[in-house]
Amino acid sequence: MKLSIPEREIMSPGHLACQGCGAALAMRYVLKSLGKRVIYSVPACCWSVIDGPFPYSSIGVPLFHTAFETAAAVASGIKAGLEIQNDEETRVVAWAGDGGTFDIGLQALSGAAERNDDFIYVCYDNEAYMNTGIQRSSATPWGAWTTTTPVKHFKKERKKNIVEILAAHRIPYIATASIAYPEDLIKKVEKIKTIKGTKFLHIISPCPPGWKSPPELSVKLAKLAVQSKIFPIFEIENGIKYKINIHVKKPVSVKEYLKPQGRFKHLTDQDIEHIQQDADAYYEWLLKQEELSNE
């Protein structure tokens, strides 16, 4: 029987992730697909800690820890260094959180994407600066509490659409993924392995301490995010060809997704309606993009 999730484990137990960490699962799945011939560039983010303190490391592949805004530029350098030494095969991954991607690392990411440098950029998105203690990032959704968007002044700005920014660079492949849909995630990494140029993978990664949600609900929340259309699962080829990979036929309400999360508990019904409309509208827009792509 051929397994849809590779059996091999590259990552070791004993890492320092919190219970129910979505980012730890994301790493585990991505490595299962990538295998050992890979080098990681990791900027300041939860994973700078999760991997383990010196002299320990849990991911089982070479990892270069680097400064917050440099994940993409370091990855470009690693790839060039390997290629000039006649190693075309080793894959390079920039592995960053949402702060290092949406905010401080955006310039380096844009530069690398414009050059179409040949590596995989993975953003594990837990929707705030979780490692420093839950401060808002531009990936924090409208309505969320964080330590810098206190309940009385919860975040009033929408989440930045990083995928559309990357699409505007016309890189060969962009995809969203969820740790609740590992088969879809693995399929995407397998596809990425066949593509040259800059690949961007955006993985929604629930964070129990930051989302104020029970650790055992992380996978369920990552599923509800998809089923409520908050985080649609799709891919974009060459910046213009859209394909929704998980069609939401019978959507659940956003309320079901928001409710188990303490970070949203202050929201009124009206606020929740606002989020619902926003999610519906984006999903509609994506359907149209998919339709246009098929014409």
Binding site: A73, V74, G81
Partner: peptide, 20 residues
């Protein structure tokens, strides 16, 4: 590598150098 800033120039140099 025609980088988009000096910050990335040094970052990319580091990545390359770290591979030997």
């Amino acid at each position: 590598i025609k980088v988009e800033s000096e910050h990335s120039a040094m970052a990319a140099s580091m990545g390359a150098s770290a591979t030997g």
